[in-house]
Write a protein that binds this DNA or RNA. Structure first.
Lengths: 200, 200
DNA sequence: CACGCTATTGTGGAAACCCGCAATAGCGGC
DNA sequence: GCCGCTATTGCGGGTTTCCACAATAGCGTG
């Protein structure tokens, strides 16, 4: 199960052509005849990639894209346009679009693009899952434990942490042990790498 | 000294207009009438930003850009084009161009763009300098010290490092101390962050 | 108020870490 | 052969970490 490609275009011909093309290469697709329809259907758990027409009745492609960003949807978006419009393309790409191609499109090109987009999404998902896992474990920490952890990853000694927090050395040791246990790591170095990765 | 904006365009009018505009805002500029001339002049220590025309006699803008990438030049490039060409714009941006704008350009827009490009370059430079600094210090490590460091950042105990390398515990301790000293950090956690950052 | 949960602290000891002092050994260069 | 650099190891001792056992205190629930 690698996810579905959602095709948003108000022209039936384009949607059907794309669906047929991608389906013939073994990809799962689903069409939407307007940005509003797609946005209303969110959240979509199977969404691995979006092919989005720029010029549509109702919301335009870029407008849909903006709303996706605001909604926190992190899926590769391939824009499709029938009109040479460099500023729109530039703005879309700088805003994080996966690609921007002109109609008529080359069949193999768009299939390749969809495949690489799905691959990129899979990587994103894996990274997001890892981050989420870390965030989940972090959420099980008490306030004090978080404070101690924050100082641990700076390389501070237990004694320095104790002074900084105004608590006894022994207490820091207890918290430290609990932090390591809850975060599922063996030592402060693994913890540091776990937290540092999350920042990126 | 914030660096010079290099303007590469085979049309004197454009070069002069841009130079005048940017100079009037207090920016330092230098013009080149062909990609070849600019590439021949490399390396240029003052280069903070490049404004590059797409269509020129001789090497095209994208061709110049490719050679810059190959040469390892990491400077923001703002493409300038007189012809609406979406595929070229898309390719340039995906290859890492800073921006891609159409002529005739808006004066304030291009000044702002140049300023943000220079700011981005300054940040890149700072990050690159930091990475270089780490790399330099790393280069002063002996082979053994590098091996020990590699195991240190995994969170391994000295005893485990000793077993892995087939040397005595005391020897590991000596190497460990030297690694920390040469890398300019106080403990293994700071070292880990230093190395992990470098990877990104 | 008793009970459960968490935070806090102490004691004491095993294990690990850090480091100065000292010594042996190999290797390349003058 | 002497010198400089690196690798290696041992000894001794101070510092830090980790943890089991034990105890006190506050807070919310029933």
């Amino acid at each position: 199960m690698i996810g579905t490609i959602h095709i948003i275009d108000d022209e039936d011909v384009i949607r059907d052509a794309l669906s047929f093309l991608l389906a013939s290469r073994g990809l799962s697709t689903r069409g939407w005849d307007s940005g509003e329809a797609f946005l209303d259907a969110l959240p979509l758990s199977d969404c691995a990639c979006i092919i989005l027409d720029v010029r549509m009745g109702g919301l335009s492609g870029p407008e849909v894209f903006d709303r996706l960003q605001l909604a926190g949807v992190r899926v590769p978006v391939i824009f499709l346009t029938g009109h040479a419009d460099v500023p729109v393309a530039v703005r879309a790409l700088k805003a994080g679009a996966f690609d921007f191609i002109e109609k008529p499109f080359n069949d193999n090109q768009i299939v390749d693009l969809a495949l690489t987009a799905i691959a990129a999404h899979a990587q994103d998902q894996a990274a997001a899952a890892a981050r989420q896992s870390v965030a989940d474990r972090k959420a099980t920490l008490s306030q004090r434990e978080k404070e101690v952890m924050a100082l641990m990853v700076t390389g501070a000694l237990n004694k320095q942490i104790a002074d900084a927090l105004g608590i006894a050395l022994r207490t820091v040791e207890v918290h430290r042990g609990r932090v390591l246990a809850k975060m599922g790591v063996r030592n402060a170095i693994e913890l540091t790498k776990l937290i540092a990765d999350g920042q990126n």
